[in-house]
């Protein structure tokens, strides 16, 4: 076999690109712990005892409701994932298991949302949410995100349910289990791996979204962390310590979670790469 592409060249390209991907993130986190003078004079040096200054962080945690924003984001993301998985699995089960007249039509109807972005309906969503008296509530965000994520969830979960052996449910029916019990006690536990994939697809866009928080819950302490940081940055744009600290506050938790779950996440992305 001929000598393949030089291993050195391959590593050089990958390492260079990795550095390019990480450099901005590291630069921000590094400088967020430094005094203002050090940020400007020696931006590439890591924080050391002589240039350390956490003033930015005391501003971020002192002046803004960052903890509230975090709670809002967690509530919205967890609520969305829970309802998307529950409603999505229920619908996927009914569509794959039961025969009824409008089955195919309903499946096509639900799959439209995979390709058409819900954002295009914003004009009417905001009207609807205000008619329901849900402006500036997390409920509005959760409902919109569930609607946005259901189509892909139903699609992925249906594919998965089709692979569950038929005997399992037939056995349940023979034992006299109701349809509800078959779903909740036999099918749902088996769906766990597929649910992890759906949760990954749901979590990232919901956590990072700026559009719907801006439209539906822009004030009243109901901002998500993404919007909260955006508003904070707008206010403090000239205070570099505060800006760098705010950016790091938003980056670090995501990075920690990412490093912990990256294996599952990438596996989810690669196995469910059907979108």
């Amino acid at each position: 076999m001929r000598k393949p592409v030089s291993a050195f060249a391959v590593h050089a390209v990958l390492a260079l690109y990795t550095a390019l991907a990480l450099f901005p993130i590291i630069l921000v986190i590094m400088n967020s712990f430094k005094a203002k003078r050090a940020i400007f004079n020696t931006p590439l040096t890591p924080p050391m005892p002589w240039n350390f200054d956490p003033i930015g962080y005391s501003k971020v945690f002192g002046d803004s409701a960052i903890a509230t924003y975090y709670m809002n984001s967690i509530t919205v993301t967890v609520g969305t994932i829970f309802l998307t998985l529950l409603f999505g699995a229920m619908a996927a089960w009914a569509l794959t298991e039961y025969k009824f007249r409008w089955n195919t039509a309903l499946a096509i109807f639900l799959s439209i949302g995979i390709m058409v972005p819900i954002r295009l309906g914003s004009v009417s969503i905001i009207q609807l949410v205000s008619d329901l008296n849900l402006i500036n509530t997390l409920t509005a965000l959760i409902l919109v995100y569930v609607a946005q994520n259901l189509p892909l969830a139903v699609f992925i979960l249906s594919e998965f349910i089709q692979q569950i052996p038929r005997d399992l449910r037939e056995a349940g029916r023979c034992d006299g289990l109701s349809e509800y019990n078959i779903f909740f006690y036999i099918i749902l536990p088996l769906l766990r791996p597929a649910m992890a994939t759906v949760a990954v697809f749901t979590m990232i866009p919901v956590w990072n979204d700026l559009w719907f928080p801006l439209l539906l819950a822009p004030t009243g302490g109901k901002q998500t962390i993404t919007l909260g940081v955006q508003q904070f940055l707008g206010q403090y744009i000239t205070d570099w310590n505060a800006v760098l600290a705010a950016l790091s506050t938003a980056i670090i938790p995501v990075l920690v979670l990412y490093v912990i779950f990256s294996r599952q996440l990438i596996r989810g992305l690669t196995s469910g790469a059907v979108k």
Partner: peptide, 13 residues
């Protein structure tokens, strides 16, 4: 699923 999807996605569109 059908209610949430219809009300918050299809109907607004």
């Amino acid at each position: 699923a059908v209610l949430v999807y219809t009300l918050f996605s299809v109907y607004p569109l």
